[in-house]
Amino acid sequence: MDEQTVLWHLGPFDVNARTLIMTWVTMLAVLIFCFAATRKISQTKPKGAQNVLEWVFEFIRGLINENMDWEKGKSLYAYLVTLIIFVLFSNMLGLFPNITFHLFDHVKTWQLDEIFSEPILMSPTADVNTTAGLAILSILLSIVYGIRFQKGHYFKHFLEPYPPFVIIHLVEMVTKPLTLAMRLFGNIFAGELLIKVILTAMPIMALWFGGFLLDTIWIGFSVFVGVIQSFIFTVLTIVYVSQTVGSAEH
């Protein structure tokens, strides 16, 4: 299994080309979905995509309400909806087969041939850069909200219950985003890896005669994992913010 990263060199910076392309595809999908859902708004009779998006909104509203004061958390509303939809769509993208049909096999421009060389597409969340980025945003949000609603108390809590605990608090500051990022990345990356293993390591004849069942089952499970992980990521973001705004008690 040669999991190779395709790099684009932008001046002094290296970026993972496959991750970027897949992120843009995901963003496009999210945009299409969200605009389709809000194109013809019906106030009294929601249907189709509008209904789904409304459900997501209500779901996030419920989660915020469960964890903190709605007045404090409502400015996170749109962010969290975007987050859960984006992560969910990202998780799903890696389950699609490579639908480019070898179109880019000989396109050397921007290394497109290498980017689309895998048997399946790739989840942006199967790159630790994506999950780490989102996790950093989450922890930044919790800090910003802590300062906004707790003012000086926010910094004081680092010294509680005793000043030496500042070390533990600082470690927590690192472990929170770290676990957040690694959990999502690990789950999605492992899921995709196994799909690739099933598709490439099995003899082609075995795939034709029933071997695809294994792949089908695993993809089904991966859908489940993807949904759960997007949910967990969003919930943990809410929880971290609610801890710092200090209204875990209703």
Partner: peptide
């Protein structure tokens, strides 16, 4: 690597558009 910055910016752009 720098991908993390691009991802953060991408996500924020998506968020603001939406």
């Amino acid at each position: 690597n720098a991908t993390i910055l691009v991802q953060i910016v991408s996500f924020l752009v998506l968020f603001f558009i939406l």
